[in-house]
């Protein structure tokens, strides 16, 4: 797998910024950005707190086509404020998803791809960020009745907090080895549970629990890919071809609860135990 020639042929998806990631997934020439950086819809809350704003608030809304069909790609820029969701960025994602659902009700089969690279809510915008995330959840649940909503967690930020719930609501989830997916970030868990249970600086341990490979082996995501633009595009096309699943992962709460019942809380959770429980129950 670590073949040098093959590695050099690959075009890294992780190394791309949000805008280029969105562009790479859309059919060539079809990219059109909505509420772009020159519209300067920036966070009204950050400047007052001494934080420099970014002209697009760290979210790219890209309209275009995927496999010839109308699509919208929502890409979060992980390099800006940890990809945190504020009022503006959150509203851009929620609004685009709501319009995509509206399109479908009018007979236009717009589908959505969300590129998660986020630690969750932007703490400086508190409740407004949380409200926006709730709107994103509702909009995904609405849109996925018509079209598959595809989530991608490529890395290196990963996807945490309320946005991990958004990822869990997606019809299909794609990850790489660099990706991490979890409700709480490692430092939060360490602070709450203690360093003996969860050492946030132990990177191999963190990835063994929340990393892309583990999440795929635990059936919590649907595709585990190499860091390659071509592979990413092919996987998105494949899931779009499959259409929305009859039953979404998030509709299987009974199966998840049954899995939870098999957890022995007296024992420190190990990656193999987690895999075994989910492989049996999902």
């Amino acid at each position: 797998m670590m073949n040098t020639a093959e590695l050099l042929k690959r075009e890294s998806f992780i190394e791309l910024g949000a805008r280029e990631r969105a562009r790479s997934l859309l059919d060539p020439g079809s990219f059109r950005e909505l509420i772009g950086p020159f519209d300067r819809l920036t966070s009204p809350w950050l400047a007052a707190q001494g934080v420099v704003t970014q002209a697009d608030d760290g979210v790219v809304v890209a309209r275009g086509r995927i496999a010839g069909q109308p699509a919208v790609v929502l890409a979060i820029e992980g390099a800006y404020q940890g990809g945190s969701m504020g009022e503006v960025g959150g509203a851009k994602i929620a609004g685009a998803l709501e319009l995509a659902a509206e399109d479908n009700r009018r007979g236009i089969p717009t589908r959505a791809v969300i590129l998660f690279e986020t630690g969750g809510v932007r703490l400086q915008e508190a409740n407004l960020g949380l409200a926006a995330i709730a709107e994103i959840h509702a909009a995904i649940a609405d849109l996925r009745r018509y079209q598959p909503v595809i989530g991608i967690v490529a890395g290196t930020v990963g996807c945490f907090g309320g946005m991990s719930i958004a990822a869990g609501l997606c019809s299909y989830l794609i990850v790489t080895r660099e990706a991490r997916l979890g409700l709480n970030g490692p430092q939060v868990i360490e602070q709450e549970a203690g360093i003996e249970e969860y050492d946030s600086r132990d990177r191999p341990f963190i990835w063994s629990i929340t990393g892309g490979e583990q999440r795929f082996a635990s059936k919590l995501v649907d595709a585990y890919l190499e860091d390659d633009v071509g592979a990413m595009r092919a996987s998105v096309h494949e899931f779009i071809r499959m259409g929305a699943p009859a039953r979404h992962r998030s509709d299987r709460e009974a199966d998840f609860l049954a899995c939870m019942e098999r957890v022995d809380a007296a024992e420190q959770a190990r990656p193999e135990t987690v895999r075994a429980i989910y492989q049996k129950g999902l």
Partner: peptide, 12 residues
């Protein structure tokens, strides 16, 4: 991008 050690330049 407005990331650590980086900056965003908008030119019009």
């Amino acid at each position: 991008v407005v990331g650590s050690g980086d900056l965003e330049v908008l030119a019009e």
